[in-house]
Design a protein around this nucleic acid. Structure first.
Lengths: 239, 239
DNA sequence: ACCTGAACACCGTTCAAGT
DNA sequence: ACCTGAACACCGTTCAAGT
């Protein structure tokens, strides 16, 4: 049905290094098709066969590039994390006040997340799930770590400047403060996507308040909260 | 294959009000089977047919009680939210210091969540997703709102006592502060479940720090963070 | 090395029956 | 009202081929 390059009688090879059959890069084409599906359908539960259909290949062609469907999801999620990281970096470029940088990157984080909810869910859903044995997909994990490193850099620099109540040389404290900031924006993003944040509040209003409280906490945190040990510690309580 | 009540020749009806065929309550049995599957397999992507098999009925029997598979997931998620709410209530019973109550309930929240990761994912995953038209499942939404109300009650009472920097009569501010606390514990729970929080930190350590910063923020939050409007506001940027 | 087509075991959902 | 069995269209994955 689909005809390509019918104009030429002899199809010259673009490169001498024997390019793959179909596209220049079917692997990339599959990832792009999957990204388009996630974005258009607002749903990450697409079928591998549908991705193949969209890329114009048989339903088995993907197995030449991804051992399992999960590996394709992993690659798609990695692209999402790369875009997220680039968005955060672009947002904080040239800012010297790390409290402002954290607030702005936090806002960008949430807006990016809710801008493509299905992709965001995919990034934190099946791509990261461990689910037993075998070799795990690792692309999303690595890309996610690089995105988190942007936040961690802000916290570290702010700790050095005295902006946050974190000892500048204490990498563990810096990592924990980063986890706190990440939890806040990740949780808010998820709650907005799930439609349980609000209702009756504008997105901007929720972002501003949640991040404002987070920044205030990072500035003033010092005393250790009493940590009550309870029967709930036993995880078996919740079957 | 399965024989029940072979001892009696005549099977007497327990109630005169003509009970359903199989169990006393197949609907409940299906929910229980699904809960057992989620808990044992550590995976919420079970098939409806498997649930039916486990309950000892044909693969179509569930359709007499749930219009779609999603409605069963909704009911299962609702049970999860009810258990969560009960856990939070039991944790804070008799506590007068609302900062301590928030810290303890936050700790209980995360421990309950990571105690059954697949159920927690199910609660915030497919059960809540809106996904277009038609009548939505609403059980999980309602049960989730009741669980959130526990946190909101703590914030409201703490606002009245001057524990948190929230005007006691400002219900909108109370709701936003609750959203902040919920985002923190929800985000942390998800990050731990996904295996991206840490690594190298004990769960207790992460919980204590994240909740400590959250409580500190709720105590000291006042100034409005400058809210920079950026190109990122346009959601289309992140395709 | 890369792709295709047939095949297998499974799934969600529908439909025509049965009691 | 509640349940069963056959049927439909689909899916992920495997296998034997083809170039």
């Amino acid at each position: 049905m689909v005809t390509v390059n019918t104009g030429g009688t002899a199809m010259p090879k673009i490169r001498s290094a024997s390019p793959p059959y179909h596209h220049g890069d079917l692997r990339r084409a599959l990832i792009d098709s999957a990204l388009a599906l996630v974005t258009e359908e607002q749903d990450w539960t697409f079928s591998l066969r549908e991705v193949a259909r969209r890329a114009g290949v048989s339903h088995n062609a993907p197995y030449n590039h991804f051992p399992e469907k999960r590996d394709l999801l992993d690659a798609v999620a990695a692209v999402g994390f790369e875009r997220l990281r680039e968005g955060l970096l672009a947002t904080i470029a040239g800012i010297d006040d790390m409290a402002a940088a954290l607030a702005m990157s936090g806002e960008a984080y949430v807006l990016l997340g809710i801008g493509n909810p299905a992709l965001y869910r995919l990034m934190f859903g099946p791509a990261l799930s461990v689910s037993g044995g075998g070799d795990q997909p690792m692309l999303a994990r690595a890309a996610g770590a690089e995105a988190r490193a942007v936040l961690q850099g802000i916290i570290r620099r702010g700790a050095g400047a005295g902006t946050f109540a974190v000892a500048a040389e204490d990498e563990r404290a810096i990592a924990l403060a980063t986890l706190s900031a990440w939890s806040a924006v990740h949780g808010l993003t998820m709650l907005i996507i799930d439609g349980v944040a609000g209702p009756g509040f504008a997105v901007e209003e929720m972002i501003e308040r949640v991040i404002g409280i987070e920044v205030a906490g990072l500035r003033s945190f010092s005393a250790r909260i009493r940590r009550p040990i309870r029967a709930w510690r036993r995880k078996g309580d919740w079957r």
